[in-house]
Design a binder for these strands. Structure first.
Lengths: 211, 211
DNA sequence: TCTCCTGTTGATCACACGATCAACAATGCT
DNA sequence: AGCATTGTTGATCGTGTGATCAACAGGAGA
């Protein structure tokens, strides 16, 4: 019954081992949250002694914050990529709202929410959170300015509106975290709210039917 | 140098002692978060041995969740009270939005956010969170239905819209927790968004100037 | 084959947590 | 005054955390 063979881990290059550790950290965070990122937890997943994880990281706060950044930045990139495929700003805004509300990203949302509170005691993480929020805001702002240029929207302060939409989306996602059964038609309601904010014609921001 | 006199705590009635403990827990939570609610922390604040706190509580999860409920329910009551003083639904909605965004309640917001993640590992707390969210939603729903009745709003699903507004407010507050410097005119932007959702005339939901 | 470099181990430290409980002492009752 | 009730203590246990470091061993180069 050698459930845990307990054999010595094979010797690997620092780069490879470091990659294993960050990947294990990513998986743990997505499955059990940033709080579950402990030396022993990560070590166990990699199949390695706890000391080794410590050896590859200055401290755990750093691993937590870099793991957060990795996960969240990947999501931003992915969604931004989807946006570029859309024909116009209204479609982009609709896709943005629709994509972020479809509950397939609840694990990432959980990490966001956790990071907001963990940031109170982990300054490195707090800085990372602000940085990633800025990145998201820029994505929204780009869409809003886009719509302003084409005349689809009419916004005086695109940056502020972008912050607001971001906040709303975050809130609705956090809500879904707790009240998963919640409300349907979330996308429709939010679309109407967003239309009000960007000064778009009612009904102009409409989610494309899911394929 | 008797910084901590270390004298034995005076003997008090169970009711009185229990009240001291819950009050100390409330203060600690508001200042340092629900995570800071430890046996020793609460005991130190009351000026009592850690065992006594344990003696008055079935377990710490219960203290955490009841403290959360106490703090949040008080806020709901307070805001609901303010609402009743307003003449009509538009004013009520405006006050609601304005009050919840004015950053004087960031400590409570921090507790909300913390509770969302802590609820994943504390089922008692999770139940309490859902209960308190329901209470908030009812407040919003009442205002929306009110406006529907007077014709100020035009909403087909008041419950769903109420959930959405609640989520938005939560998100914007959580955002303010991290990006305090953030955006000004948050109330105005949100008012416009809410108008879009409730089908109110643009500009009808406007915050009363602060006295 | 031998040697050195370095990736790796795991025991260990100090600390914090929740929980438990025998012993203590203040209070009110008889 | 003596006693019984009960609020209170604080040491203790088991667990978990991050961090440290002497000792070990795999592998590449001489």
């Amino acid at each position: 019954m050698s459930s845990t063979p307990q054999k010595r881990a094979v010797r690997k290059s620092p780069a490879e081992r470091a990659a294993e550790i960050t990947e294990a950290a990513r998986e743990i965070a997505l499955e059990a949250g940033l709080t579950a990122l402990t030396l022993r937890n990560v070590a166990a997943r990699v199949g390695v002694a706890s000391g080794l994880v410590a050896h590859y990281q200055p401290n755990m706060d750093a691993l937590v914050s870099s793991t957060f950044a990795t996960i969240v930045a990947a999501e931003t990139q992915e969604v931004a990529g989807l946006l570029s495929l859309q024909p116009g700003p209204s479609e982009r805004l609709a896709l943005l709202v629709d994509t972020l509300l479809n509950n397939s990203r609840l694990d990432v949302t959980a990490i966001w929410v956790e990071a907001w509170t963990l940031g109170r005691r982990n300054e490195t993480l707090a800085a990372s959170v602000r940085e990633q929020m800025d990145a998201w805001q820029k994505v929204f702002q780009g869409v809003v300015e886009d719509g302003n240029a084409t005349g689809a929207f009419n916004v005086s302060d695109a940056a502020a509106v972008a912050w607001q939409i971001l906040g709303m989306v975050d809130g609705l996602n956090a809500q879904a975290l707790v009240r998963w059964d919640g409300v349907n038609d979330r996308g429709t309601h939010l679309a109407r709210a967003v239309e009000g904010m960007v000064g778009a014609a009612p009904g102009s921001v409409v989610a494309k039917p899911r394929l």
